[in-house]
Every structure is written in structure tokens, then in C-alpha cells.
Design a protein around this nucleic acid. Structure first.
Length: 308
DNA sequence: AAACCTTCCAACCGCCCCTCC
DNA sequence: GGGAGGGGCGGTTGGAAGGTT
């Protein structure tokens, strides 16, 4: 038992929600005397609370410089950017957001941002694409797609399941698709040192120069909307009408992930599982799979017989 | 209208680190 | 050096509020 935890065990000390009267006592005392020693503060302030409870109430709620209300887009961007660098260091993140407390940011992350990233197919821990789930989707596709993607591309290296999953998703998540931009995406992924080996440049060039082997789905594509990893201007705010690949290979797509936020259970609910370093709930996985299984391969303009 | 479900967030909890003696 | 005290931090919980059936 840690020493500080004794705080919560002391009999006679009140727990639970603070009353307006308690708040007033605490504010009055701190305004007069400051908050040097939290342990003795409640005694002098006439509060039947432990010092730790007083400190939390002050820092998370009563402090006069606390900003209330919804997080702005800029604040949300700041949080995501900071989190991608320093992780769950809420106090450090809070230091970048004047008026926001670490607790508030932590809550906002868990209730909004985390879910948003998951819906986008981004691991909220690593901020990388969730290839684990993409692989799951591949294994769940009992029937192969209506065309043989590796054969279609004449790219043996795409037989790498990771790459195949990514490529499949790239294709399936796009309402719009054309060969040149897909190739550009691959080239950029390759150049940006995606962990898995990608196409040799010679093969990329070959594909680039032989677009006829790729079906033209008759639309333009936004797959190659690269953006720097630290440029979070479009980090989900437009619901990602287009898939996006970041410079470090991070990829997100609006067709990967989960259903509406209203259908997702709290992330700390029971029934969680651990997949490749990220925890997901049964509901999330089910939701993800249901989405996966409805992958919509745009078939218009595709001559399947060519690949038979 | 009521029961049930989901979301949200204030507060709790326990661990850790720093300082002091 | 090491034990005690104080405070900070991140994870988790529980209940209120709102939404849905």
C-alpha cells in the first residue's frame, strides 16, 4: 500500500461529488492563503476531505484559469500531434493547451479522439495504420476478391500479406481509383521506408509504364494525398472523404474502421481483446469486421475475363 | 411513458518520483 | 543511504444525462 493511498482510507473524510459549499470553502481558502500544503489544507479550510481530493478539485475544476466548453479543432489537432510524439503524457499535453487540464484532455482523448482515430483505421497508440486489422479482414474474406490482385498488378511482391492487405484496402476504400495515382502511392510508400519491403523501383517503373494492366475504375483517386505526419489539418475533420497516406507510411481511410460513434461501446468496457499492441473491444472488432465484409470493389469498367 | 443503452466526465485509485530529515 | 511525507500522474470507475427502442 502506497503512502498516498492512505488518503482515501481515512475514516470520516467525505468522498464523492463536491457540493457548492465545499467548493466555496476551498476557493476562499486558496484565494486567501494559496495552496502550499495540500495535506493540511482541508483542516484549515474546514473541509472533511483529504488533501489529494482538494488538489484534484482545484486543479481540475475550480482553478480560475480553466477554459470550459468544447475543444476547438485547433486544440484537437494540438492534442493529436502532441500525443503522436509523447504518448499518454497528459500533463505535458495539457501544458501546450492553456486553460485545459490533463484530466480534461485525457477524457476528451478517450471519448472522442481515440474513437475517431479507430474509425479511421489508425491505431491511437502508435498513430500508424492498423495493419493487424487489415490482415484480419483478409483472413475473413473467405472468398478471394473477384479478381486476383497480385496477378492483376503483375507484382509478385504483393503476395506479401501485409502489402496485399494494404493494397486491397487502398483499392477497396476508394470510391475513385486510377492506376497512375495508385502507383504514385506505392512509390511514395516505398520511398518512405515502409517496414515491409515494397516494390523495387524497376517494377514500379514497369507498372507505371503499363497502366493497361490495371483496371481503370473510371474515377479519380485521392489515395496519393500525401501530407506530412505533423500536418494534421485534415486529421479526420472532413470524415476523410479520401484515403490518405502520410509521409511516414501512415495510412488512413474512411472505409476502414468502425461504425458510427454511437454504436461503439466505451473503450474501457469489458470484453476487450489485445491485437498487435492495441486493445479493441468485441464491439469494435465486430463493427470493423462488418465493415470489412462489405468491402465494395468497384467493378464498373473492370473486365474480369481478362484475368481469368 | 418506461426501460434500456450509450456517452460523458468528475472523481477515485494506486503507483511513482522528488525532497527532506 | 533509506525511510517518510508530499505531490504529480495516468488509468479506471461510477453515476448522471441524453438518446434510443
Amino acid at each position: 500500500m502506497s503512502r498516498s493511498s492512505l488518503c482515501w482510507e481515512k475514516n470520516g473524510l467525505k468522498k464523492g461529488p463536491w457540493t457548492a459549499e465545499e467548493d466555496q470553502k476551498l476557493v476562499d481558502y486558496i484565494q486567501k492563503h494559496g495552496h502550499g500544503r495540500w495535506r493540511t489544507l482541508p483542516k484549515y479550510a474546514g473541509l472533511k476531505r483529504c488533501g489529494k481530493s482538494c488538489r484534484l478539485r482545484w486543479t481540475n475544476y475550480l482553478r480560475p484559469d480553466i477554459k470550459r466548453g468544447k475543444f476547438s479543432i485547433e486544440e484537437e489537432e494540438n492534442i493529436i500531434q502532441a500525443h503522436s510524439v509523447i504518448g499518454n503524457k497528459w500533463s505535458a499535453i495539457a501544458a501546450r493547451l492553456p486553460g485545459r487540464t490533463d484530466n480534461e484532455i485525457k477524457n476528451y482523448w478517450n471519448t472522442h479522439i481515440r474513437k475517431k482515430l479507430l474509425r479511421m483505421g489508425i491505431d491511437p497508440v502508435t498513430h500508424a495504420p492498423r495493419l493487424d486489422l487489415l490482415q484480419l479482414s483478409s483472413s475473413l474474406l473467405m472468398k478471394p476478391p473477384p479478381f486476383d490482385l497480385p496477378g492483376l498488378l503483375s507484382i509478385p511482391s504483393l503476395l506479401n500479406p501485409d502489402i496485399l492487405s494494404l493494397a486491397t484496402t487502398l483499392m477497396s476504400c476508394q470510391e475513385n481509383f486510377n492506376t497512375q495515382e495508385m502507383v504514385t502511392t506505392m512509390q511514395n510508400l516505398h520511398q518512405n521506408q515502409l517496414q515491409s519491403p515494397f516494390l523495387p523501383q524497376s517494377q514500379l517503373n514497369q507498372v507505371t509504364n503499363s497502366s493497361s494492366i490495371m483496371p481503370n475504375f473510371g474515377h479519380d483517386i485521392a489515395v496519393n494525398r500525401y501530407q506530412p505526419y505533423n500536418n494534421l489539418a485534415n486529421y479526420g475533420y472532413d470524415e476523410l472523404k479520401h484515403g490518405t497516406v502520410s509521409q511516414n507510411g501512415a495510412f488512413w481511410c474512411n472505409n476502414i474502421g468502425f461504425g458510427s460513434s454511437s454504436s461503439i461501446t466505451p473503450l474501457n468496457s469489458s470484453g476487450t481483446s489485445f491485437m498487435n499492441g492495441c486493445t479493441i473491444t468485441e464491439d469494435e472488432r465486430a463493427s470493423y469486421c462488418s465493415k470489412t465484409l462489405t468491402f465494395d470493389f468497384p467493378m464498373s469498367g473492370l473486365d474480369v475475363n481478362r484475368f481469368a
